[in-house]
């Protein structure tokens, strides 16, 4: 593994001002997530073990190699699968810890860019993935289609938010933010759009296997997603 085309904004790529701004933007979500998790763990200590399982699972998922699409080495983000299995609320804190460990153990992402990465990958991505998944399920779409749309759109929106963060920090001399957004989105889109589709397919296949063989395990995870149980079409 050497050349990794991920969408983690690398260390030092954002100027101080934007690094600070995105950290502040992510902070309310982190505080809310922290309070929520601390509350449920106090009531049910078993959830601490379940959360620790979920975090490590997402981390290991993101360190696996995806089938190469454009000849580059890529990894699943785990954003869609994590949000569907564990719920977007839990994903804020888990995503933050996973992103920190990715910076410290894999050298993906960074400390100064942690806030920006948390915002795109642990907040916007999971909420969109879960929202799309739930909405499609409610509308009566087949399970596979809902999972695919959730995971693929979650991954796509993560990439678009990251492109916007980069464009805000580095606006073009001619055309400003919008011109820069188009540039970053186009350049990273070459790898990120196929990856999003591959990630959607992967998530569907994983969910199908889990639904077929491990329904009890999936049900035991529902403790983490307060309220939203996984929609099953029979």
């Amino acid at each position: 593994m050497s050349f990794v085309f991920g969408m983690h904004i690398m260390e030092g790529f954002l100027p101080m001002k934007w690094a600070a701004l995105w950290s502040i933007a992510a902070l309310p979500f982190i505080i809310a997530g922290c309070r929520q998790i601390a509350g449920v763990v106090r009531e049910e200590p078993k959830l601490l073990a379940l959360l620790a399982f979920a975090g490590a699972f997402v981390f290991v998922l993101s360190s696996l190699k995806m089938p190469s699409v454009t000849g580059s080495c890529s990894h699943p983000t785990g954003v869609g699968l994590g949000a569907i299995l564990f719920g977007p609320g839990a994903m804020v804190i888990l995503g933050m810890i996973v992103l920190l460990f990715q910076a410290l153990l894999l050298a993906h992402g960074g400390i100064t860019t942690l806030g920006a990465n948390v915002f795109s990958m642990a907040i916007v991505g999971p909420f969109v993935a879960y929202g799309v998944y739930r909405l499609m399920s409610k509308l009566g779409a087949p399970q596979g289609l809902s999972v695919f749309s959730g995971a693929a759109l979650g991954s796509l929106i993560t990439y678009l938010v990251t492109a916007a963060q980069l464009a805000l920090a580095h606006p073009a001399e001619v055309g400003g933010f919008y011109a820069s957004l188009v540039k970053f989105a186009a350049i990273f889109g070459v790898t990120q759009i196929p990856i999003s589709i591959a990630e959607g397919l992967l998530t569907v296949m994983v969910m199908n296997l889990l639904m077929a063989y491990s329904r009890d395990e999936i049900e035991s995870l529902s403790l983490l997603r307060n309220g939203g149980s996984i929609h099953v079409n029979n």
């Binding site: 593994m1 990794v4 983690h8 690398m10 790529f13 580059s72 580095h170 350049i187």
Partner: peptide, 21 residues
């Protein structure tokens, strides 16, 4: 290890370097 962020770095710098008008 230095090559790990190189993919992102090169693409990102490319976007800053070139522009379309």
């Amino acid at each position: 290890l230095l090559a790990i962020p190189l993919g992102f770095l090169l693409l990102g710098c490319l976007a800053v370097l070139f522009s379309v008008s």
